[in-house]
């Protein structure tokens, strides 16, 4: 036989032996696959929790906007002029104009259940509220420059006095910054926790596989004594490790289907618009690749590392 033929024959034998060993050690294989499933579920959790936190961060950022309130006496022409100039800024996505009357109507509606405020408004006789421009930027980080534009002298009226009463960006900014810092921290903490869990469960999976090889240590020494090479002894164990990984990966992926389906109602209520089940289905290939690859790597590496100890004879 040529070297290549011999290699292929050996490869075939190693793979076949691996499958036989997996099947014949049914109980041990079952235990290893179950432990591995826990590990892979934790790894899957990293992907899901990352997606949930990302979605909530995006959701929050979409809620950010700037309201510019004008003084009640501001001329509509001046306001529309500012609106036009704002719209010409590249950072600005959308500017909506609410007239004094619209602002008043919205205010009355908001306080429809509060007769004292409505009575006070009536007492005043005239509309105390100014017109409002609502600005949405293309990206949350651009609000600062939009606010700066409004703060600078660009927005003076034709008469040279400012007609802007207040800009709420500066009031909301602190809250927005705090909230996004909080989400970022939660993101990082969640990631650290899942990585921690993943490491622990990997160690457990590694130890389980090590035990299965420990059981076979006498066998390994017999193989050594009949003159089998290291690769030839190690091969089937690595194949078994890979089978553990693939089987556990496939089972974990299947298990995620009912779990995410069940969780999807909860996540949809809690995080508006995020459905964990459809997220899973949409990103299935990527998640499947990550989980099965992790399983294969953990299985193969555990086998290689665990068996080294018994190959010294």
């Amino acid at each position: 036989m040529s070297t290549k033929e011999m290699f292929l024959t050996k490869l075939k034998r190693v793979i076949r032996t691996g499958f036989f060993n997996f099947w014949r050690n049914g109980t041990v294989s079952l235990a290893s696959v179950l432990v591995m499933m826990v590990t892979l579920s934790v790894i899957g959790l990293i992907s899901f929790s990352g997606a949930i936190l990302d979605t909530s961060l995006v959701e929050l950022k979409n809620k950010i906007d700037i309201n510019v309130t004008f003084v009640p006496g501001a001329a509509e022409a001046d306001i529309l002029n500012i609106k036009q100039r704002l719209e010409s800024l590249p950072e600005v996505f959308l500017v909506t104009y609410a007239t004094r009357e619209e602002t008043l109507a919205a205010f009355k509606e908001r306080h429809a259940n509060d007769p004292s405020i409505l009575a006070a408004l009536d007492e005043l006789g005239e509309n105390p509220l100014g017109a409002v421009l609502n600005i949405k930027a293309r990206d949350p980080s651009q609000y600062a420059s939009v606010a700066e534009f409004l703060e600078s002298g660009n927005t003076l009226s034709s008469g040279g006095i400012t007609i802007i009463d207040r800009i709420n960006y500066f009031q909301n900014k602190t809250a927005i910054d705090k909230l996004s810092a909080l989400i970022n921290a939660a993101d990082r903490l969640g990631f650290a926790l899942t990585v921690f869990l993943a490491v622990i469960s990997m160690i457990i999976a590694f130890n389980t596989i090590r035990l299965t090889i420990y059981i076979a240590k006498d066998e390994i020494s017999v193989m050594r004594l009949v003159g089998a090479s290291t690769a030839y002894i190690q091969g089937p164990f690595v194949v078994v490790g890979v089978i553990y990984g693939v089987v556990a990966g496939v089972l974990t992926l299947l298990l995620f289907l009912p779990i995410t389906y069940w969780l999807s109602k909860v996540t949809e209520n809690f995080l508006i618009g995020f459905n964990i089940f459809s997220y899973y289905l949409h990103n299935f290939l990527e998640i499947a690749f990550t989980i099965i690859l992790s399983g294969v790597l953990i299985g193969a590496l555990s086998s290689i590392l665990a068996i080294r100890k018994y190959l010294k004879v």
Binding site: K10, R13, F20, N21, R24, N25, D218, E219, V222, M223, L225, V226, G227, A228, S229, Y232
Partner: peptide, 18 residues
């Protein structure tokens, strides 16, 4: 010291494979 998870045939074949 036979290999417990292999049949009689496979035990002997293993030595030849090795």
């Amino acid at each position: 010291r036979l290999l417990p998870n292999k049949t009689v045939y496979e035990n002997i074949a293993f030595t030849m494979e090795a």
